[in-house]
Design a protein around this nucleic acid. Structure first.
Ligand SMILES: [Mn+2]
Ligand SMILES: [Mn+2]
Ligand SMILES: [Zn+2]
Ligand SMILES: [Zn+2]
Lengths: 132, 132
DNA sequence: ATTGTTAGTTATAATTATTATAAACTAATT
DNA sequence: AATTAGTTTATAATAATTATAACTAACAAT
């Protein structure tokens, strides 16, 4: 019911596929960082019926547009998404190619002193690259 | 001569193509942020002979490996590169899709309090997204 | 419930950035 | 000059993503 309302309230029809993808994405306490490819595999594991790749793409983009997912800037051949849509910082493990959330309290306050005329700051995010 | 030595010293042959690309990339005081596509256009403007796309890719990757260029993590369909290879922060103008360097003095020191066992910090970079 | 309307799903094709291939060429070395 | 290894190039292959269009499911109105 939770996801049915969530989808209806944002003008998205609660289809079987979307509800199943919701479960995979949001039925967990931990932040989930993923590529479409990884999400597809997780769906196959957890769900018995098939969801087409096009639907996975469509759903992820629909959810992103509605603010339930955000894209994470990482240089990879695939796009990374995040179920944590707040502004937040990341560790990126270069060896494992894994993203890990940093709490805002893990990073001191960041003071941007420079200003650009006519532009305002939308977000400030830190990427901390890790290696062994 | 400048670039001939630079290339020779890093074990790259100073070919006509590489020297011309060097001029486009490094003959400027300002940091140059670019995609392969943008670089290709700039080459066509500034150079009369033709350089094949494969060579542009090869050269950019060779220069990146030698530490003359670095990749910038930005969500785009194309990969961004930077002639400023030091660890530094960026403004990213979401409207113009343009990267602008921040001086380290424009951002106060950043204190990462969390640690991951067995991993060490390789870089800490801030991305400040701007909009109108 | 039946119907019509609209949104969503799907298989598949198209697109596009990037990488691989292999032959031709060029710079460096002997 | 001849040899060698590195580089360039046109072109093909790859792979992530997006577009297409027929089919299907959700929903509102009757
Ligand atoms: Mn990319
Ligand atoms: Mn990217
Ligand atoms: Zn995150
Ligand atoms: Zn820069």
């Amino acid at each position: 019911m939770k996801y049915i309302d969530k989808l209806r309230n944002s003008g998205l029809r609660p289809t079987k596929q979307r509800l199943q993808i919701c479960k995979v994405l949001f039925d967990t306490e931990k932040t989930f960082h993923f590529t479409i490819n990884e999400l597809e595999h997780k769906i196959k594991e957890k769900i018995d019926n098939k969801i087409s790749l096009a639907t996975v793409y469509n759903t992820v983009h629909a959810f992103e547009k509605k603010g339930y997912l955000k894209q994470i800037p990482i240089n990879s051949n695939q796009t990374y998404f995040d179920t944590n849509v707040t502004d937040h910082h990341h560790f990126y493990d270069l060896n494992d190619q894994r993203l890990i959330d940093l709490e805002n309290s893990d990073v001191g306050p960041i003071n941007i002193k420079k200003k650009i005329n006519g532009k305002r700051i939308k977000s400030v995010e830190v990427l901390v690259k890790l290696e062994d």
